[in-house]
Each structure stands twice: as C-alpha cells, then as structure tokens.
C-alpha cells in the first residue's frame, strides 16, 4: 500500500524535502508529498479477494481517511 497525505493537507515533511531539493539545484521540483509504503503477505484465492481484504485493513487501521489517501498494488505469489 502507498499511503500519502491528502491533497490540501499540509505536508511539512514533503515541503522540507522540496526546499532541500531546490537548494541542491533541482528547480523543476514541485509538490513533494511524503507518505508510507507498507508491504504484507495475505492468503487469498484471488487478487480481488486480497485487494478487498487489504482495503479493509487500510480503512480500519493503516490509513487515516481524514488526512491520508491510499492505493494498493497486488502481486500474485
């Protein structure tokens, strides 16, 4: 899962990274957003079933929907 700050929510870490990159000379950089990456194994019969399960995990614990968005990638074993 990729968990990122929602658009519009102040992301001070992303902003600090953006400033540092600009001071290094990367002037084309904008809108840096810093989030979390979580990897886990889940036993499931199909990719859909796994995605559904992990989506519920995000809703209940892994992401806070007030301030964060998430997206999933499922890989078969």
């Amino acid at each position: 899962m990729y968990i990122t700050p929602k658009r519009g929510v102040l992301d001070p870490q992303g902003r600090a990274i953006e400033h540092s990159l600009k001071s290094l000379g990367f002037h084309n950089v904008g809108q840096v957003r810093m989030g979390k990456y979580i990897e886990l194994d889940v036993a499931a019969q199909s990719a859909e079933e796994a995605a559904g399960e992990v989506g519920r995990m995000c809703e209940q614990l892994l992401a806070n929907s007030v301030i964060e968005d998430y997206r999933l990638e499922v890989e078969g074993a």
Binding site: P5, V9, L10, A16, N64, I67
Partner: peptide, 10 residues
C-alpha cells in the same frame, strides 16, 4: 473530529 499531524516546523 479531525486528526493531529506533524508540526509545521517538523
């Protein structure tokens, strides 16, 4: 309601 996140100053 709401949430608490990282201080603006970090």
């Amino acid at each position: 309601p709401g949430a608490l996140t990282r201080n603006r100053s970090l």
